[in-house]
Design a protein around this nucleic acid. Structure first.
Lengths: 343, 343
DNA sequence: CTGTTAGCGCATTCAG
DNA sequence: CTGAATGCGCTAACAG
């Protein structure tokens, strides 16, 4: 903080009035004469007075700061969610304290504790992939912090949540592959204890079952993480199979891109020999060769809605409002990495 | 903030001692008996006491919060810089308040003012592309806020700065193109009033001049912004020329990707007919077809160093330390979108 | 070693 | 309408 901040007392001394009068003028209370008010406001402007939020926070017991924790900010996905959060929150005077857990459970706990100490007014959290229990979140909730979980569900933990219907997205994607004539559809999955990975895998499996396809273990590969490198490794495994798949549904675009490069290197044609589908619809997906069919997610809206729910919570006194569980719908975007529907 | 926070006074009442004694125990002052200390610490743990940072901030006149303002968090570039900042700052107990200006000058001013009110301890700023004057930054500096400008230089504004040597990066790239036999090298530039765009363009021009090439206005195109879409539009313009260029040096990878798709659509071979070079070396660049030659920037380190400089500043009492101006070196990464050097 | 006092900057009683 | 007093939670200076 700066050394010589102009305070309400400075103004009071200058004008030979009491600090409370200054306060009244500044907050334009009705209990002050118009003339005085003007004089005070003028001086305040001239002396560049600005209220000390810290003192106010201490007094009001609220900071107007929201804590946001995501697994990683570098990903297009989460930064876009933050974008949505920011846009929602900006106009309401709330500031964002953002931190990333780097997919570490311990880090997540540390960050949350630090933010609780700062007394943020609420939390927006997308848990790390290694977050196995939710004691830390429960602790926050129970000590009265409003919090909203977004994108990654915490199964079994009761709280406000906003997620994308991964299951439906996967179902759409795989059914499309089936409709375009693919017979041997593989799946490259993401980190196993991610709710999103589970749901997408389930969508994949159910799409197969629904269409009387066999679910083959050998066609389901799970990489280390959800990166392009992981996609490369997983795809290589699939290419070692006796009988190659004729389609691959990937957990996300990053994996799909890695897979694409491996397929290409092996001289296999996309989509003629193998159809490829990603998830997320990242900005570059349409610029790949071939352009990537992918499941678009309303991730910006997800951020927006999460923030809205938190703000609503903050602006209501009612305590025991039911927790909300919002599910946003994804959408399949068909491009050139998958075969076309026959007319 | 939570309704029923446990305070130092609560503990004091419980134990029938004065608040200062509690304070001493908590801060393990030497002026307290070991026994009492233990008792107090135990109770504090049991009652889940946690210090109120707000009160401390008000007292110490520092919040341990750093304000970070970037043009956009969604970009890989800036989110990686934030990553570096976070990693540097995390261990020192500082928290980050992050906001994006969305390349808007007015928004930048608003954000900065809000952060100043919160009394952040310092600023890390990468100005928007529409920031034409630096009065707001000067105001911050003059009211005593330490601030570090990173990535985008504010020409003429004297302050700590950390930037990448765009000029040298561009020079490397274009000289490489020349060495591989390109004769007619075009340039697609970014937003005109960005220091980075200026420097890259200058690097391009100087590389040409140094090698006795003519600088042709028709070969320099400037798009609306720095997006892939802008790259598409700019490349189309270049393809309308009587005589096509045999190389295009782009302001960044996004533009290059857009350009690549246009070139491909027109049945022109990369790199045989046109060499393509980007800037930033985004993670997907190596997965494009052909993989993109690009200038890698030490952007993570840029964040790291900026944060370090700010922290150093914060930990020194000395006022009139000279402002630092750090320039990080980029590096050309050669891939398949440019011709190879002849042996 | 420990308690009392004061004050960080502010808004909100309560008396005038 | 206005001023004095009080307290948000905490530490530091000052007396014991």
């Amino acid at each position: 903080m700066r050394k010589n901040q102009v305070t309400i007392t400075d103004l009071a001394r200058e004008l030979n009035v009491s600090p409370s009068t200054i306060s009244r003028a500044l907050n334009n209370s009705p209990f002050i004469s118009e003339e005085r008010k003007r004089v005070i406001l003028d001086l305040a402007a001239k002396m560049k007075y600005s209220p000390n939020q810290l003192a106010l926070s201490l007094l009001n017991k609220r900071t107007k700061i929201l804590g946001v924790v995501v697994p990683e900010i570098t990903s297009y996905y989460f930064s876009t969610a933050i974008n949505g959060i920011q846009d929602k929150v900006g106009s309401s005077g709330y500031k964002l304290m953002i931190s990333q857990s780097n997919e570490s459970f311990e880090e997540e706990i540390r960050i949350l504790e630090a933010m609780a100490l700062v007394r943020v007014d609420g939390f927006l959290i997308s848990p790390s992939s290694n977050t196995v229990n939710f004691d830390h979140l429960e602790k926050l909730r129970d000590s009265g912090f409003p919090l909203v979980i977004f994108d990654r569900d915490c199964l079994g933990f009761d709280i406000d949540k906003v997620v994308v219907d991964d299951y439906s997205g996967a179902l759409q994607a795989v059914e499309y592959l089936i409709q375009t004539g693919c017979k041997r559809i593989a799946h490259i999955s993401g980190s196993t204890n991610l709710s999103t990975a589970k749901h997408r895998k389930n969508g994949y499996i159910d799409a197969l079952l629904k269409n009387n396809f066999e679910v083959l273990e050998e066609l389901i590969v799970c990489g280390e993480d959800s990166s392009s490198e992981s996609g490369v490794a997983s795809m290589k495994k699939l290419l070692e199979l006796e009988e190659l798949p004729d389609a691959v549904f990937c957990y996300n675009d990053a994996i799909a891109i890695g897979a694409m490069s491996v397929i290409r290197e092996n001289g296999i044609k996309i989509p003629d020999q193998i159809s490829l589908v990603g998830f997320d619809d990242e900005p570059y997906s349409s610029y790949f060769k071939p352009s990537l069919t992918s499941v678009w997610q309303p991730i910006y809206d997800l951020g927006l809605l999460s923030a809205k729910i938190l703000l609503d919570k903050l602006n209501t006194d009612v305590e025991d409002m039911k927790y909300r569980f919002e599910v946003l719908k994804p959408e399949l975007v068909i491009r050139d990495s998958s075969r076309k529907l026959k007319e």
